[in-house]
Design a protein around this nucleic acid. Structure first.
Length: 284
DNA sequence: CATACGTCCTGCCAGC
DNA sequence: TGCTGGCAGGACGTAT
């Protein structure tokens, strides 16, 4: 499931090779990923030049000439694969399975959007529409301007469990189920703790933990549980570094207490019942 | 308004 | 051994 580190990895890999490239043609094999008729989509993108590839939350943002913005959300199983190779006959390689959209580049190469479960979305927006969409998304956890005070403010007023709050893309953008559990473990905060009850010290610990986990995961090129691949088709290397996610029943890496799994808002949260206490501290 | 929960979609695998 | 029901969850829509 591509979260911030996975999307960041893909964006870093695509930025150089795609910048300045021409989109020669677009083929849509799965129209349900779009919010417009595929013919319109293809016509509007053909002939555009890629100006930049960036990330906002879990979204890949391609700025194109026109100007227009191509927003790619990978959902659960989406992949952006850059194929620059040719086979021995000189024609492009065979289309990968579950291919949804392919962007033929000039000169040569293809960017494939592949998605088994098709939870992903590809939106073509104007600069103004994207500005509004981006404004609805929450703070970037790795933005150095994000302070512990601001972090506390983001959680303030929420009676929801911390785990659910971290998944809310309108508060912080980019965290999904894997890094929510990992961050809470590092910050020693219980996933069911009421989000709005965090004091400044705890908010700072949480922000530090979120940043540390995301940065380490980026360095490892993300976490492959099953489906995630980088833009070069490789698996991410952060899996072995996961301390609680998917480790139900295993001993806590800190205190050896068995890791527990609980379900919050239909999502699994993994935590150590000994290291991560439910109760807010009495000194707040 | 905020929160909870169902829905989409398919591959995988535990359990019968 | 083969089949199947349940599970996985990002984002959105609907219900409370």
């Amino acid at each position: 499931m591509p979260e911030l580190p996975e999307v960041e990895t893909i964006v870093r890999q695509l930025a150089e090779p795609l910048s300045g490239r021409l989109i020669a043609a677009v083929e849509v094999h799965r129209p349900d990923l779009l919010r417009e008729p595929p013919e319109l989509f293809c016509r509007a993108l053909a002939g555009c030049r890629v100006q930049s590839v960036t990330r906002r939350g879990k979204n890949v943002v391609l700025r194109l000439s026109g100007p227009q913005v191509l927003l790619v959300n990978l959902g659960m199983t989406g992949r952006l694969l850059l194929d620059e190779t040719l086979d021995e006959t000189g024609s492009p390689r065979e289309a990968p399975p579950y291919l949804c959209v392919s962007f033929s580049l000039a000169p040569g190469g293809t960017l494939h959007y592949v998605d088994v479960r098709r939870f992903g979305r590809i939106l073509r927006l104007s600069e103004g529409e994207w500005k509004i969409e981006s404004g609805r998304l929450g703070a970037e956890p790795l933005d150095p301007r994000l302070s512990a005070e601001r972090m506390k403010e983001l959680l303030r007023g929420s009676r929801a469990p911390l785990h659910s709050c971290l998944l809310d893309q309108h508060r912080l953008a980019g965290i999904g189920n894997i890094y929510a559990s990992e961050s809470l473990f590092r910050a020693r905060l219980h996933p069911r703790r009421e989000a709005g009850s965090l004091n400044l010290r705890e908010s700072e610990a949480l922000l530090d933990a979120v940043r540390a986990v995301l940065q380490e995961a980026i360095r490892a090129r993300g976490t492959t549980i099953r489906d995630y691949r980088t833009a070069t088709g490789d698996e991410g290397g952060f899996g072995p570094a996961l301390q609680v996610y998917g480790h139900q029943g295993d001993p806590c890496p800190r205190c050896k207490t068995p890791i527990q799994r609980l379900v919050l808002a239909n999502r699994s949260a993994f935590y150590c019942p000994s290291c991560q206490r439910q109760e807010p501290p009495s000194d707040s």
